[in-house]
Computed example of a mutant assay.
Amino acid sequence: MLHFAHYGSAMEIKQLEVFLAVMSAGSITAAARLLDRSQSQVTRLIQELESSVGFALFDRNGPRITPTSRAVAFHSDAERFLTGIGQLKERARNILSEEPAPIEIAAIPAFASGLVPLALAEMPADLLPRNVHLRSISAEAAVQSALARTADFCVASLPVEHPGLDVHGLFQAPCVAAVAADDPLAGKDIISVRDLADRCLITMANPFRLRRRVNQALQAADVRPSRVVDTNAALNALQLASTGFGVSIVEPATAYGLQLKNVEIRPLDVDIPFLWGIFSAASKPLSEGVLELIQLIIRMSAARIPGFVAHDPGHIERVADATFGAGANAQEQ
């Protein structure tokens, strides 16, 4: 993780704002329109930021600009920093007006798109502040947000190992298959891995997590799909399955947290475990509303996900090692 102190004291927030605008808009001209600044002002602030960080942020070819590899690496930290500044300003306004602080949630897409919104909808009105921020990001970024305290808590897939985290829950459930409603496999109560022979398989891309365990199940059954399509989000896999394009193997949070048309969810005849947890920065005081939301997410998960198992939060390393193997450290969606 980058620390802005490393770049010198000359860096200013307005320079970072301009940088993010250019990255988002794709050009100096479009960024100038977004910020209501002149193109010359935007160009000057970018040049000042480049001078401050010590490396080029954009390659220039006439009016066209392309982010450098260093700009791409710098982008997520700049975005996280400015998000934190914005949250700090909002918190100051809340203190001044004596309003409850916003709830800040960082969650992997599997939960941000389904179960967290369902839990939010069940929140008591007196515990729900005026502002709630829900970010759908990778497990690694979600954990970093919790550690940096730009999120009150995060929902992330395992493995997650960091001494600076409090564990509010550690859970497991089996992955499932998804097929179009008119697919012949939709008529089965349980889909076998052998049913995937000569079918198009749609699954996750990360080779160290779910994809690895799917591959192991296929190898154990000596099954070879006709085609494999992978993606970084289970929602994409479900959408593809709904078209009849193939059979999807996905984690259960998205499968049971969302209600998609023309998709049937079925258990598999092999256990491909999906593990996740809810984490916050160690010793960070959490409001009554945040604690209630965490419990609602847990209750919603237990009610909607078949095969839901809650593990002892104190055994996170033991559970992760048993499932992924010692030393596993990759992050997935």
Rank of each mutant, 00 (worst) to 15 (best):
F4M: 13
Y7D: 09
M11D: 12
L16S: 06
F19A: 15
F19Y: 14
L20P: 13
L20I: 12
L20T: 13
A25C: 11
A25F: 06
A25I: 04
S27R: 04
S27P: 00
I28D: 10
A32G: 00
A32L: 08
L34I: 14
R44D: 12
L45V: 03
I46M: 14
P63D: 11
R64L: 03
I65K: 03
A71T: 01
V72F: 06
A73D: 15
H75Y: 11
D77E: 13
A78T: 13
E79K: 14
T83G: 09
Q87N: 14
L96T: 07
L96W: 06
E98H: 09
P102K: 00
P102G: 00
P102A: 04
I105W: 05
S113I: 07
G114F: 12
L115T: 09
L120W: 06
E122Q: 15
R135H: 07
I137V: 15
A139D: 15
E140L: 13
V143G: 02
Q144F: 04
R149E: 15
A151G: 09
S157T: 14
V160R: 05
A173D: 10
V176N: 10
A178F: 10
V179T: 05
A180H: 00
D183W: 04
P184W: 04
P184A: 09
I190Q: 06
L196N: 10
A197V: 03
D198F: 13
N206R: 02
P207S: 01
R211E: 00
R213L: 08
L218Y: 05
L218I: 03
R224P: 03
S226Y: 04
V228G: 06
V229M: 05
T231G: 07
T231M: 04
A234T: 03
L235M: 07
N236L: 02
Q239P: 05
P252F: 02
A255I: 06
L258W: 00
Q259N: 14
K261D: 15
N262C: 09
E264M: 13
D269N: 15
D271K: 09
V290W: 02
L291S: 14
E292K: 15
M300F: 12
M300Q: 15
A303N: 12
R304E: 02
F308E: 07
V309Y: 10
D312V: 02
H315V: 00
I316T: 08
A322D: 11
T323C: 12
G327F: 04
